[in-house]
Structures are given as C-alpha cells and as structure tokens.
Design a binder for these strands. Structure first.
Lengths: 230, 230
DNA sequence: AGATGTGAACCAATTCACAGCA
DNA sequence: TGCTGTGAATTGGTTCACATCT
C-alpha cells in the first residue's frame, strides 16, 4: 500500500548536503543585508559562499521559489526564509558540558547568540572550576559553572533540547547518556569518541584531530609521493 | 591520447568519503591495540567506528588487501597501514594563529602530538598575549606566543606546511594570505568566513555555529512541525 | 535581455549479495 | 565454515543546458 503523502505542493525532505550549506548562505546574506545590499544574483552569492551558481540555485530551489527571474534574490527576504527553514527564528537553549579551554571558547563564541542559541547551562566535573562565572556570549549575562551531579537539573531548568559535549574522551559517553535521559535530543560532540545514542537523538561530531589528519593526507599527496613505479 | 598510468597494481585515488573515515578507524584500532586485542572482524570494527561493515570493508579495500578471509584484520598491522596512508608516520610541524580560548584548546590538545602533529609556532595579534608560554601538547615543551608581524619567520623557522587559523573572522583572510605566501600549503580554518586561496593550497573549515544550525534544523523537524496541510 | 528554476545527464558513494580464499 | 573483498545495483549529489518568467 502506498504511503499517504501529506500534500503535493510542499517541499519535503531537503537533502542533507543542502542543509549543510544553508548556514553558509545565511551568514553571507546576513553580511550583505548589514552592508545595505538589497539584491544579489545567484552568481554573486555563490562566489561569496564558495560554491558554484548551479549548486546554489538547486539548493535554494528546495526551499521554494524565492528569487525573481532576470533580477536575482532579495537579500532581506531570502535571509529570513533560510533562517526560518533552519529554525533560527526560534530560541534554542543550549547546555555545555566541560568548561576547559574549548568549553570557554564555545561559551564566549559570539556567533551563537545572534542565531538564537542561548547558553543556559555550564557543567564541569572539576570542583575547582565549579562556581566560576562565565560570560556566555558577547552581551550575555554571566552564568555560573555547576557541578556534574547537577547536570539533569541544569537541563531541566534551562529547558535545553541541545547539549554540547566538550569533555575529555573518557567522560563523553556517560555524559551523553545522562543528557539523553534528561531529555536532550540533539548533541554536538567534540570528544574524540563515537557516541552511542537512541535513534531519536541527533548527533553531530567535530573532531579536531580528524580534520588535521585529512589535511595531512592531501598534503602528503601534494609534496612527497613521487612514487615512480618500476 | 590516453594518459599514461603509473602502474596497474597500485591503489590510486582513494575516495574523499573514505579518507574522511580513515582517522576514525585509526583511532579505534589504536585503542584495540592498546587493549591487547590482536584481531578484529569487519563487523566488530565497523560497530566500534559507527559505520556498516560493508562500508568499512569497501573503505579498507581501497588501501589494499590487509585482512584474512575467515579471520579478520590484524589490528597492529592495519593500524600501521592506515597511519602510513594518512601520513601519520611522519612529522607535521603546525603553526597556530590566534591564541584565544580556542587557540589554547588546540595548542593543549593531546590528540595532536600522538599523531605526528607538532605545534612549532603560536602567533597572536594582541600584545598582551605575546610572550606567554604555552604547553603545546601533554608532554610538549612550552613555547612562547610571538607577535603577528613575526608570522612569516615562525612558519619558516618551524618548517610548517600546515597552518591553523583560530582568529576572529575579520583577520582570517589576511592571515591566510600571509600563511600562503610564507609557504603553508594546508590550512585548517576555524574562523566563520569563506577563505580564498590559490588552487595548490588545501583548506578545511570547522564552523561551530554551522554545526549547531544543522542540529537545530533536524531538532525542529523532530519536535514542532506538525504541519497538517489542509 | 537576463537571471531563475529545473529536467536530464553525469558522477560519487552506499548498499547488496556473493564469489573466493583461509 | 566464516569472513573478506568486490562486481553489480541503487541511491544521493552535482553539473549541464535550457525553458520560463520578469
């Protein structure tokens, strides 16, 4: 039996590759709006975002028809449509676990606040860091680092659906389990481990060492590797 | 005219998607070796790396035939083969520009030293940070933060082919240009801007805000979004 | 005229399913 | 027998080229 489809008109299922590029388009467009630019062509926008114009147009076509033929895109209108699609028009409370250098960097990062991400909790296992006041965001109020045992309370009180793991590798899975059972359903993981989670939880991973290793692979190919085979 | 191919036997052109996963396999295998495990099946290794066994076998097949049918893979042998392919058996001097919280986190990150990445230079534009001694890596000797104007010297003296940009967005392109003209050919960029570089330079980008936005997109789909269309 | 939006062709990556070897 | 290695089939993503609309 054929699945009942919701409706015909709608754009459903934006490709993952497209979703991954929308934040870049959004950032570039926000700059253009700031600078007072009212209109861009796909050619210009694509160049600024570092992609081809065909790819850009295909990506945007998945959201709808927001351009004007012969003219281009209205920057203000498009930036809003992308923001809405990404969910940036709503408020996303975020809890950060692990307040070492990386956790600090994340808590202070200005790019979060301006896109609806609000740090509502900081948690660390190290007693010497507990109690420290940290300015979350450029104009955010300082918030205190709470002990690891309070993790569930911090998630609940802040109403956070998104958790960031910036702990050492050894602690990551246990922290992850506790975040999930506290109700977090999206996790950004900076620890170099593969996390195991239930299916309904979304996980993304940022691995600093991995990125360098990928660079090194290509670097090695460019230099060295003469490889004259007899 | 057909291009002359180097030889028939050799594995040339490992797919990008495979290269991106090799560091994960390498890390998992290193753990297994450490724990004294001598052999793994593709099934076990895949589970630990968070991929399917078919994908793992296909990936490894691009490197060569390093397994034994009916048995599995010798962990010690395979970890070395992957390390060699990734270039982890050689020494990679790295220069980090921007020594804020993120730069500190990178300089201290233990995962670098153990994989051949050696921080040979730290550079910052802020005079109040210049001169600070930072322990690069867990057992690395402390090295001093040098002023931005010394960037070219730091790259040359350290013999660095890899540069890491951990500066604010506004400074990134200019730092990038200077790294490239100083001889750097691989760049890891943490600043939220699209860098322009010559073709012979490899760039990878890690964008913290982008990752959160991708998470938020999927989170929004899971919750909210009832979208009953009339 | 000029730029978008999109079917069609192309290419890359994943998954399937099994032949081949220890 | 059991697990790897790999052609074949499939799915997903990119590029091309042009019909379409302002």
């Amino acid at each position: 039996m054929p699945l009942p489809r919701a409706n015909e008109s709608s754009r459903r299922g934006i490709p993952d590759a497209t979703v991954a590029r929308l934040p870049v388009y959004h950032r570039v467009l926000a700059h253009l709006v700031e600078r007072g630019v009212a209109t861009v062509s796909s050619e210009e926008l694509a160049a600024a975002a570092g992609v081809t114009s065909a790819k850009l147009r295909k990506d945007l076509s998945h959201l709808g028809s927001y351009g004007t033929r012969g003219v281009g895109y209205d920057t203000e209108y498009l930036v809003y449509q992308i923001a809405r699609e990404l969910g940036l028009t709503q408020d996303w409370p975020v809890v950060i676990v692990g307040v070492g250098n990386l956790g600090h960097a994340l808590a202070n990062y200005g790019g979060f606040a301006s896109r609806g991400f609000r740090v509502v909790g900081l948690v660390d296992a190290d007693p010497s860091r507990v109690g420290e006041q940290i300015n979350a965001g450029p104009n955010g109020a300082p918030i205190a680092v709470r002990p690891l045992q309070d993790l569930e309370d911090v998630v609940a009180d802040g109403g956070a659906a998104i958790g960031v793991i910036a702990t050492p590798a050894g602690a990551a899975q246990s922290v992850c389990d506790r975040l999930v059972s506290a109700g977090v359903t999206s996790i950004l993981n900076f620890a170099p481990v593969v996390l195991t989670t239930p299916d309904h939880v979304g996980v993304r991973k940022v691995d600093l060492a991995t990125e360098l290793q990928i660079l090194a692979f290509h670097e090695q190919r460019r230099s060295g590797r003469a490889e004259v085979t007899a």
